[in-house]
């Protein structure tokens, strides 16, 4: 077996495990949010706000980074990942530039997400009409 083949084989196996982890962790986060919504009877907007704030807090406690390490997209795609990215960005810049970094780092880190939302959101609004 050539080195190349061995490498791609390991990659494929590794990918499968990564998919399973992403599925389980991502699913679990959604399940927790759903349980919170059904039990508190809160509206979806409140749950989304709480989830994103919880992500920021977990990130501050140092719990979210390991989750991203384990589950990859399974932890970054759900909304709590957005809170985590904000905190990470703020702390990274703060480490480099001092407290001023809190002002600059946050939106720099989530810029792609926000920009895509505005851009694609606008584009879709121009292209499509609501179907009801």
């Amino acid at each position: 077996m050539s080195i190349e083949e061995e490498y791609s084989g390991r990659r494929a196996g590794g990918d499968f495990v990564a998919y399973v982890k992403a599925f389980l962790v991502g699913g679990l986060l959604c399940a927790i949010a759903q349980a919170a919504m059904d039990l508190t009877k809160a509206n979806p907007a409140i749950i989304m706000v709480s989830a994103v704030s919880a992500g920021a807090v977990l990130s501050g406690l140092g719990l979210y980074a390991p989750l991203v390490e384990i589950a990859g997209a399974g932890a970054t795609i759900p909304l709590p990942g957005f809170g985590h990215t904000l905190v990470t960005g703020m702390l990274e810049d703060a480490a480099q530039w001092g407290p001023f970094g809190i002002l600059t780092g946050g939106f720099k880190a989530v810029s792609a997400g926000l920009l895509s939302a505005v851009l694609f959101g606008y584009l879709m609004a121009v292209l499509f009409n609501p179907k009801g």
Binding site: M37, K41, P44, P130, K131, G132
Partner: peptide, 20 residues
């Protein structure tokens, strides 16, 4: 009208949410 009332009283019609 369902869609007209929905956007006035609740959410935009294309917003995905569960109804109790």
């Amino acid at each position: 009208h369902h869609d007209a009332a929905e956007r006035q009283f609740r959410y935009p019609t294309e917003f995905g949410h569960q109804r109790p």
